[in-house]
Design a protein around this nucleic acid. Sequence first.
DNA 1: ATTTGAAGGACCC
DNA 2: CACCAGGGTCCTTCATCG
Length: 861
Amino acid sequence: MDNGESSTNNSSRPWESYNTVFTNAKAGMEGVDKEKVQRIVYELSKGSKYFQNEERKETLMKQKIEHMHDRSAKLSSSDLSNYQKVVDRRILELEATRDLSRIWLHVDMDAFYAAVETLSNPSLGGKPMAVGGLSMISTANYEARKFGVRAAMPGFIARKLCPDLIFVPVDFTKYTHYSELARKVFRNYDPQFIAGSLDEAYLDITEVCRERGLSGGEIAEELRSSVYSETGLTCSAGVAANRLLAKVCSDINKPNGQFILQNDRSTVMTFISSLPIRKIGGIGKVTEHILKDALGIKTCEDMVQKGSLLYALFSQSSADFFLSVGLGLGETDTPQARSRKSISCERTFSATEDEKLLYSKLAEIAEMLSDDMKKEGLIARTLTLKLKTATFEIRSRAVSLKRYTCSSEDILKHATKLLKAELPVSVRLIGLRMSQFSDEIRHSDPSQETITKFIVQKDFSRQNLDDNKIDASKNCLSNDESMSLSFDTHETSYDQLKDVLENEEQSQLDANKVPPNQECTRKEERPQVLEGDALLIKHKEYKPDTSHSMNDNSSAQNSEPVTLFLPIEPLFWIDGYKCNLCGIELPPSFVEERQEHSDFHLAQRLQNEESGSSSSTTPTSKRRILGKEKANSKPKKQKQSEKDDATCHLVLYYPHTISFQERTPEEMKMALNLIPPKLNLSPSNSLGEPKSLPSMSDILTSSRARNLDLKIQTLGPFFRVTGKNADTGGEIGRAEGVVRPWFGQGLVLHLDTIRLTKETMKMDKSVLGVGLYVGAVAIRHGYDCGCRTAQLLAIYDSDLYHSKLVRFYRRIGFEEVKEVSGSLIGDMADMLVWGGVGTRMDANIHHLLLKWSKVFLKSNV
DNA sequence: ATTTGAAGGACCC
DNA sequence: CACCAGGGTCCTTCATCG
């Protein structure tokens, strides 16, 4: 709040309090009549919508500063001393990472765009000139800067400041060309240099310096003159131990100069001590003000002095950043080349409320964006609409699509929906952005057939496969193709099935949709689709789970499910009530108890089998160490649950129970033909492991060989798998569950019950055999629904039984996720859903199927 | 408890 | 006369749940 003198005479000289970016002294601004500039900028700005918005932002910032100030004032001295301990520890840790062995050079072309324009039109030389339009200037040459003209200044203001200013439109192809020339030079010094933008780069010149026995300064000189001779353009350079410092240094003797900061801790600290924080990349106007006005931090050195405040008031990562700045630390390694994360297109126009006009603008932008994506060969699944209202308020609205796309139709369709929801509104800018690119396309490795490519080729019968760039018009996945529901062709890909599903949904939407250029008459809102069927439709894009690729080897190796499920001495009840294995007596009416008992033997068997092989995966060891050091004292308590039938609760959530729809194995098979036969979803297909997963028909065929009659029924998201004795028709096992979205994981297969009836005992196959088949059908069903994960609850009944059960499921391929103990509030939901306490366990469906593939594929024979 | 998506901002050139 | 871009990245916060 120490605004000092300027705030006192606000009324007489109001422009002084109007802080624009142009006020900041940057290179080339020496000798500028700053007050005059500021006054002109103010005069031209005041009262405008833009200005009002700036004022609004200003007050917001003031509030933020005040809030921060208050918070800092409230800190007790014991708080501060605690945070000081954190700071001290952090300083030691950060200091330990200090690496003074590298020499980084930051090059920055001088007034790049302007310089290039002058190069291609020498008559511009010596005259004030700006690249950009009347609305916005990208770069001004140094002659123009003398007038106070600078980048990011609107053209009309610049013209006021410098009436003779020459405007040159931007021409990126030209700049790209010269940029490339300069980069060729950079490559000679560091083949892996990091391109910051067209006009700047970071070079690790450690090796060159060493090899040629030259200092950083000498290399910088040479590089700059080399750039000049290759391009005719001047540049400035900064040399320092890390990139952050190098960047600061390159600005010091701009233009056409350089500054070298010795790789020596005390030199660095001296340099940093007086450095205004604003010079640091990443600290902009807002942060500067907050730090300065609320905390009194002006120089980088202050960051260390007031470290405890920083850690008390900012997030860990921010505080870490600030502190490391204060210590003069920065990145010293060369990171992996980063690929772009989004692509966007936006246009400003005179604000309008005209919906028809807005829709047509939107269509243009969608088209442009689509074209750009096609040029780049990108497909993405998150679409963000950006609006700037007439009052300069920025809004963004995003949707994640079910499929990757780059087609303008898809983009426009969804963008229109987003825009429609905002109307009526007066808008001056519309932008569209696509993000969440498909990995398959992005790190496209021509030698590897990726799923996306597969689909792309399949859908549109491509010819030039070796073309790395995806040709737009044909290759892009479109949701709009009118697909018929023909299941007759084997060519139909799984994704096309989803197309069909989506189109069903889409056509519903379309019924509600009002064509952009028509009067909006139909106002009825789309009903929230929460019914089960919608859940099935709304599954995510289907792609290999790369995040688990690590597990693949292990799961492939220790997959001997065959032995696991081979019948060993089956359990049965002597005389109907006595266990043949241990002699315990349980009357036939004790169904549950008998079930548990047989499970017990099962688990025991497994334990014996397992005794040799140690389980290689310890789920908890994968935990990432997070900053939070909350001791999760989770009482692993029992508390017998009131064994509710979980299904009842679920029915409460989905009350539209009518009747189960029967799906015969034949129908299942038919659906399965939709899956491309060769499509291998395994992330590690390099290994010579089974190439295909057991299909539903594999499982069914295999089960029939075992005299098992399997059936799956579905009702919306619910499913029930029943296994019957093919001869007697008696039910011997069933699995029930639901396919539903789970937070952050798309759809999951929720396995509710797996129950084997006493009929099982009379079969000559082991309990496990039946259980496996019933389970496999359920898992496969989940797979077909697009689930990636299966979840179940290993019910807690008794210590012994529970641990065996957990071990059993783990052996199959499930991993413990959490304990549902009933002692935490959060467990209520789980208990309701699962109907008890126990251990929640998850499994990757793909891995399960992969693991089981041998069993079913073999027994097919 | 963990992860994700959405919205909004700050910042850079 | 009025007129303040467009392409990105990264961060934080919040919601959420059957």
